[in-house]
Amino acid sequence: MNIDASLFAEAIAFGLFIWLTMKFIWPHITKAMDERAAKIADGLAAGERGRKDLEHAQVKAIEILHQARDKGAEVVEVANQQAARILEEARKEAQAERQRQVEAARAEIRQELNRARDALRAEVAKVAVAAAERILEREIDPKAHKVLLDDLARQIH
């Protein structure tokens, strides 16, 4: 057995190293490890949250897309109806205008016809008087027979 004072020296050294480890090494290392563990846990949770958020956002985006599509279809529908209505109105207006113009043209034609008829009537009366003058010469007094002649001329339409 070689036991001597070295034992005490080594025991003191041992105590010193235990104290140093307890004071300067162990707390710092375990603290860093615990913090990292917490960080990793947080990161995983955040990742999970992000994934969920993304899912929600996707669902919402699809919903909004559907809404937009519906609204678009609605707008197109309304526009189509309006276009049809405008077209219908235009058509009616055009028809009325045509009717009016046709009426106007007809009235003018009738007027023209009447005028021609009057002119023709006067002409026929003159011709008839002239012809009768020639045939009857003196036997007919234009003054005495004017009423008769006018009546005759009126019968010509």
Partner: peptide, 19 residues
């Protein structure tokens, strides 16, 4: 060896990062 142990571990402990 005790101080080799202490200082080498202390180096790590001093700069220990949770990153």
């Amino acid at each position: 060896l005790g101080f080799v142990f202490f200082f080498s571990f202390w180096m790590a402990a001093r700069k220990a990062t949770s990153g």
